[in-house]
């Protein structure tokens, strides 16, 4: 359980990182290390070069700009958890991050690391899908932006070239007040979710104006339940509406692994998406009462 041999690089600027990635064969970037370090210790990853991003300047920030939250790739999950801006403007991310690992892992783990690792159950990946985030990557030809829908290439593989690095994620904000919820089922607190569900709701005079329902942990990448969203828009929120709409989640093609068979994931998908919607709807009411 010791990392394999590699050459270590600790650049201080994004162009330096891009330059290294362009020239070094079989290089891996080290962000918070909460996924790559276990893979190195277990020798599941065998890079010849490790490019440590922890000394790169200007990649850790959280700011609101143009109706969106912009978060730097090396922003620690801890800083997202304790950000007043995230809590006030993007509460679904706050609720999600409390379910990411533990204090010790959130202190080190980063947003960019989680998105690039692209674990099917990762909470921040589901939040990026729910909010239709845009991901900025820097490479030899400059910076390009990838809509989240085109970000997962395949299982745990983002659509980023070997000479590119994720620098920033832009999360469009929902108007105030909106409803939000992030719920998940895991075997133990802090474990990867078997299934997670994120819900966002905007209502106008009692009718649902806009809805976002996302399932994590069921497929290789988070699934936006467009069918459920369509069934909700224009309707008056009720327990029956949510229950009936979420039945569509039982039909999705789900993964099976040692943690749960596909049928159990389909069941959880229907139950958790309904719970998330109920909680999101209740929060719109609560926000209106307090304002």
């Amino acid at each position: 359980m010791k990392p394999p041999r590699f050459d270590y690089h600790d650049p201080e600027t994004v162009p330096e990182v891009v330059g290294l990635l362009k020239t070094l064969p079989n290089a891996r970037m080290l962000a918070g290390g909460q996924s790559l370090m276990p893979m190195l210790n277990m020798r599941l990853a065998l890079p010849d070069h490790l490019v440590d991003l922890n000394r790169v300047e200007g990649l850790a920030y959280i700011r609101e700009t143009g109706g969106a939250l912009e978060i730097g790739a090396m922003t620690r999950q801890r800083d997202i958890e304790f950000s007043q801006l995230v809590l006030e403007r993007c509460p679904v991310m706050h609720e999600a991050i409390l379910q990411v690992g533990h204090r010790q892992t959130r202190n080190r783990g980063t947003l960019g690391g989680s998105l690039c690792q692209l674990d099917p159950s990762a909470e921040l990946v589901a939040v990026a899908a729910a909010l239709e985030a845009t991901i900025a990557v820097a490479g030899p030809k400059g910076t390009r932006e990838i809509p989240f829908s085109g970000f997962p290439k395949t299982y745990m593989t983002p659509a980023i070239g070997p000479d590119e690095l994720l620098t920033r994620v832009r999360f469009p904000l929902w108007p105030r007040p909106h409803g939000w919820a992030f719920v998940e089922f895991a075997r133990r607190h802090g474990d990867f979710a078997v299934v997670s569900a994120a819900a966002l709701l905007e209502e106008d005079r009692g009718k649902i104006k806009r809805a976002s329902v996302t399932l994590g942990g069921v497929a290789a990448a988070p699934v936006r339940m467009k069918e459920v969203e369509k069934a909700l828009v224009g309707q008056t929120a009720s327990d029956a509406l949510f229950r009936d709409a979420c039945e569509a989640c039982r039909k999705i093609e789900a993964m099976q692994d040692v943690h749960a068979p596909a049928s159990y994931r389909q069941h959880l998908a229907a139950v958790l998406s309904r719970r998330a919607l109920e909680r999101a709807h209740a929060r719109i009411g609560a926000a209106k009462m307090s304002s």
């Binding site: 290390g33 909460q34 276990p38 010790q104 892992t105 202190n107 080190r108």
Partner: peptide, 9 residues
């Protein structure tokens, strides 16, 4: 800040 020392170099 707490951290897992097996996950740091």
């Amino acid at each position: 800040q707490s951290a897992r020392s097996c996950l740091m170099l």
